[in-house]
Design a protein around this nucleic acid. Sequence first.
DNA 1: CCTCCGGCACCCTAAACATGGGGGTCAGCC
DNA 2: GGCTGACCCCCATGTTTAGGGTGCCGGAGG
Lengths: 218, 218
Amino acid sequence: MVPVKLVIYEDRADLRSSLELMLGGMGDLFLCGSFPNCRNVEKEIMALKPDVVLMDINMPEYDGLYGLSKIKSIHPVTEVIMYTVFQDDEKIFKSLEAGASGYLLKDTPPVKLYEAIKDVILGGAPMTPGIARRVLERFKKVPTDKLSEYKLSKRETEVVSLLAKGYTYKRIAQDTFISIDTVRGHLKNIYTKLQVNSGREAVAVVLKNKLVDLGEFD
Amino acid sequence: MVPVKLVIYEDRADLRSSLELMLGGMGDLFLCGSFPNCRNVEKEIMALKPDVVLMDINMPEYDGLYGLSKIKSIHPVTEVIMYTVFQDDEKIFKSLEAGASGYLLKDTPPVKLYEAIKDVILGGAPMTPGIARRVLERFKKVPTDKLSEYKLSKRETEVVSLLAKGYTYKRIAQDTFISIDTVRGHLKNIYTKLQVNSGREAVAVVLKNKLVDLGEFD
DNA sequence: CCTCCGGCACCCTAAACATGGGGGTCAGCC
DNA sequence: GGCTGACCCCCATGTTTAGGGTGCCGGAGG
């Protein structure tokens, strides 16, 4: 198998050189570059076209999040593993939104680091256990699904979800085979229950709380 | 360390018994029950109060998703690892929404299975690499952040995000220190760019595509 | 230089909407 | 039987929106 081309971004010189030593020594890794910050990330990535980047987040000035989004915009096939001491949700999710393929804390033992790099190449998404858990937490449904909280009836849910599609009253009336006045009536009750007083507000509420399915778009 | 109390749900008798053998033999696991379906899951969980459940998804009648949600509602501290041949998104995300702490495919080698159980106890979230990747995909912002796709200007983005909060034109005008007619003007352009023709539709579009931050609600 | 575009402002009109009434049927529950 | 809640319909009033103009300014770029 062709060796995996690896690039490291890490500001602390001592840590960087030990990473170089450690990972560069692995037979099937080819460490083709390591840098203390992301100032020239675009040039570096374009020149080296690495398979995997190990990216520290906390670096002066041009930090890891900056580097990550640059990499993903100019050479998206490069897999980026975030490597940091930080465990705060904001950094985690910003990284994942920007397309990071893994997220490791710096207390990760070297062997695991190596495994993570191999893993990411094989289509995995290596994460420190605690991080993985955080990620899963995001998926949990809001307790009792709020729909019951607002107690919208079946018909009301139907109407409001059509509203959320941007339909006019007329269109909603047609689709549900009821009169436009009835639609109005339902909306009155819905607005009361949701404690809003405009359709747009209602749409915002139901979408934010995922009360309705939007289906796919466009 | 106190042994981890484990319960297995798996309909295939052969697989179930080999799991029993394998995992029961581990010194720090205490296999306190194994069942071919979730018919009596409530009674069983209440009686055994396991630390971890290894849950097959595909079982006749009372399946793993059913079991999972029952467990999470009656004894939420029990960690549930889904264990299945299925890799389809719907099952994955339904499981995670319902509170599963891990998701393993059945091709997972036994050692990894054991590790996963230990992992989940330590607050991890063991996942087959491919699954982890799927999960991360969900977090990715829509490609190039569509904002650029729709090419909304800064002001337009601002206006439309206030609109998404349910504000009226008047309110938006006040908040942005511009005239209400200007707000109207911006909205006209926005609607054109988003290819919609009502505020509610616009709200739906921006929320679905996560073009704006809604901040937290209520 | 001049043109384009974002941002700003104003006007008008017709349509859509929010809100307040007034009704009514039917099913389920005490 | 009386009550409640979901669902249905109609009317009237005033406000808000959508969509169509027109015009002015300033900065970016041909």
